[in-house]
């Protein structure tokens, strides 16, 4: 395929993905808006006013970056895992398999679809947070790049999960038993400096901690971790997941007999 044809094919997948989550907006865009508003009211306003400061900031200010990042993570992952599994389940993945689109374009299309929803929901949550706090961006480049990289990483994770999934149960196991606990323990609601030394060490093994803290650094200028290390780690993990996803597509795992 020529470069222009490749771009048309890529853009077709992206538009199809965006059309999908926009069509079912009460399932995709509305729930995170409601959930995050409740977090802002309950944890930020009601409980937060009694907690006082965290990391030198008002508690509401401290948790807003974490909650935005939580939305980006869960929605990027959730979009790709449910969309690609649905594509497999309804067998319209065959539309892609019979076409001449290279695997890297298929993968990129789904990942960008996941990023579109992750970043879109992140923006909705950011706008909602403005009703509760003033949001100043300390470092725009860090803020934007960490959101995009996190979204890409979890979109790839969702894609791999969808490839291995054989039932609808299989696409909810990772979000429920892995993503949610790691996100809650990833410094969304607290600074790990509050933890005993041993648990601080354990927390450093949680990759989501690096994403949340790098984003918090972009917004507030404070972080529990080394930003350069966080970016390097993310780049490396994205490269590994992208290569592994391509390998699975090439092999036809779960999609070809």
């Amino acid at each position: 395929m020529k470069p222009r044809e490749l771009f048309i094919a890529f853009w077709t997948i992206v538009v199809k993905e965006i059309r999908r989550f926009m069509r079912i907006w009460p399932q995709t865009l509305l729930p995170p808006a409601i959930t995050m508003t409740l977090y802002f009211i309950i944890f930020g306003n009601l409980i937060g006013s009694r907690i006082g400061e965290m990391g030198g900031f008002d508690y509401m200010e401290y948790i807003v970056p974490g909650l935005i990042m939580m939305s980006v993570i869960t929605n990027s992952y959730g979009n790709v895992v449910s969309s690609f599994y649905g594509t497999k389940f309804q067998r319209h993945v065959e539309e892609l398999l019979v076409s001449p689109i290279p695997n890297w374009v298929i993968l990129s299309g789904y990942v960008v679809g996941g990023v579109a929803r992750g970043v879109g929901v992140g923006l909705i949550v950011t706008l909602l947070s403005l009703f509760f706090t003033d949001l100043q961006v300390h470092h725009l480049f860090v803020t934007i790049s960490i959101v995009l990289m996190t979204s890409i990483l979890f979109s790839l994770g969702g894609f791999i999960n969808a490839i291995y999934a054989n039932s609808f149960d299989d696409i909810s196991i990772v979000p429920t038993f892995v993503l949610t606990p790691l996100t809650y323990l990833g410094g969304v609601f607290y600074s790990i400096q509050l933890l005993p030394e041993f648990w601080q060490g354990v927390s450093m093994l949680n990759p989501i901690l690096y994403m949340v803290n790098t984003f918090r650094y972009g917004i507030l200028g404070v972080s529990d971790i080394n930003i350069v290390f966080a970016f390097s780690m993310l780049l490396a993990v994205i490269a590994v997941l992208f290569s592994y996803s391509l390998y699975l597509l090439q092999k036809g795992k779960g999609i070809r007999s």
Binding site: E5, I13, L96
Partner: peptide, 30 residues
């Protein structure tokens, strides 16, 4: 190649026009 499988394998939630134009897009057709 054009392929018409035995089982229905299109997105049941998409509109007829979208199904056909999306497939065209996969072949790089503007």
């Amino acid at each position: 190649l054009g392929v018409v499988p035995q089982e229905f394998n299109f997105n049941q939630f998409e509109k007829v026009m979208d199904i056909v134009t999306t497939q065209a897009g996969y072949y790089g057709i503007p």
